[in-house]
Amino acid sequence: MDFTLKIWRQESQKAKGRFETYKITDISPDCSFLEMLDILNESLVNKLSHPVCFDHDCREGICGMCGLYINGHPHGPDSAITTCQLHMRKFKDGETITIEPWRAKPFPIIRDLVVDRTALDKIIQEGGYVSVTTGGVPDGNSILIPKHKADKAMDSASCIGCGACVAACKNASAMLFVSAKVSQLALLPQGKPEAATRVQNMVAKMDQLGFGNCTNTYACEAECPKEIKRSNIARMNREFILAKVASEEDLQQ
């Protein structure tokens, strides 16, 4: 397969970026998207020019490092997958593919398609600790958790922190990500003791870092590779209201 690639190139955070056009030929339909970029980079290196920088690590859809805005979709046109799981057979032969970095104020560009997603880590840090009992191995059934709650918590916990929700949102809002992180703990008894503080601190951090406000447009849900659901956002709103109204704990700010 042959493709025309329009790729965002930017030397550094401060530098002015631009789109460069590259032709690439003889790509196998079974080639993954990142392999296709590897092939492009090899040819660029052979011509002694700078390869296109892009983030990746596991290449099996579990680490959340990869993330490209491809033809108007974070993680490309396929659904419920990360960029590394995207294959060239999803594109038409001869198609022009435009590749852009995640765009959001809290995600400054490091180089080309690589953005700094430390902001998401900062929000997680702000969530603080979870109290656990140390000592001997506890009995498996000493804390009872209803199956549906365990399932929902597990679903929420499957967020890999890729930031596609922020990239997809017209407001660059991180609500889906934050709500997944809040939910996975709020749903379980182990997460209850710090739940009220956690949700308030994480939301405050999210706001402070410059993410937008949610307008319940649900682009995040549509593009999330892990199919994190919008009901997480409702749960976080609920947790937040309850914390504001009922929690007697003072926040350490």
């Binding site: 765009r103 997809a168 937008g212 649900y218």
Partner: peptide, 23 residues
């Protein structure tokens, strides 16, 4: 605030399907 959260726009407008009126 929402506009300021994305100072640089995408070149390709979003293709994500969302409820029409919410936008």
């Amino acid at each position: 605030e929402n506009w300021l959260a994305r100072p640089v726009r995408y070149k390709v407008r979003t293709k994500t399907k969302t409820p029409f009126m919410s936008r």
